[in-house]
Design a protein around this nucleic acid. Structure first.
Lengths: 149, 149
DNA sequence: TGAATTTACTTTCCAAGTCAACTATTAATT
DNA sequence: AATTAATAGTTGACTTGGAAAGTAAATTCA
């Protein structure tokens, strides 16, 4: 349930695009995190599950870039997910340095449940905007994502 | 210096607006963080300094909301900043529960230097976009910031 | 007034993140 | 082929973050 009537905090920071972006992300992330928490799931955990479902045979490094985490952080998060029975590791046959991550049945099941919550939030966000805004936003966010290496 | 030619990572996550926003934020935050690090400064630290410079007599709570931090996290960061001589605490005269934060001369000096770096990055980002996009982006980000309470 | 509640901030304890170093494997050089 | 360099992932020491409890001041209300 989206909260309306939230009083906007006016601050000099609003003139910085990097801050505006951080603030928007913060707000959206917070609502999503709260919703997923009710189902015992973190946003980052869900991202990993979702990514593994669609791209097969991902290595830790590739996954780390996609889910926006540093490798050591991902390693530890995956450790936890393994002990929760959501994923399992498999050493790559053709390159033994690489580790492929695979969803377990439980992992896929949990992912599917959570996916719906994320889609609900997505629809709520998009409903606030008009179609042109959505198009521009998508385009701009894609540009910005490629800003840094 | 912005890195061009960064290969965009195509992933199913790109269909989620919350992820696109996170990815854009991540990229922008990373570049800024790297630049500020060369000057021994964190993004969050700069935000605090910048905010204190323009709004006078801010309490910890107000500041926390503006700089997007939880109160305990802010308390600890301010502890560090006090020991670095960037800010100092002052108990509010009319309400002794409140704490006002004030910039020191050093804090103001450091803030002014860093501000330029942030503005440079801002200009670089805006230069990538055309004016209509910028207007829409500002408007949309403001909307999204008010999404959550 | 004074007991109960609310508000503001901090502390504590534990979980999570980070940097640098480390291991293992593969690729490149000579 | 043997040595060197590069890559992939993890580990370990340390720092930081966060939820919940704690402290203290202000406010409410009986």
């Amino acid at each position: 349930m989206v909260k309306y009537g939230m009083k906007h905090v006016s601050t000099s920071m609003n003139s910085y695009i990097s801050y505006m972006l951080a603030a928007a992300h913060h707000a959206v992330h917070q609502t999503l995190a709260t919703r997923l928490k009710d189902h015992g799931m973190q946003v980052e955990t869900w991202r990993i599950l979702e990514t593994l479902d669609s791209e097969q045979r991902l290595t830790m490094g590739e996954l780390a870039r996609i889910v926006l985490m540093n490798p050591p952080t991902l390693t530890k998060m995956v450790d936890r997910m393994v002990s929760q029975g959501l994923v399992h590791r498999q050493v790559d046959a053709s390159d033994q340095r690489k580790v492929n991550l695979l969803l377990t049945d439980l992992g896929r099941k949990r992912m599917t449940e959570i996916r719906e919550l994320v889609r609900v939030q997505d629809r709520e966000i998009l409903a606030q905007l008009d179609p042109q805004q959505v198009e521009v936003l998508n385009c701009v966010l894609r540009d910005l994502s490629d800003t840094a290496g």
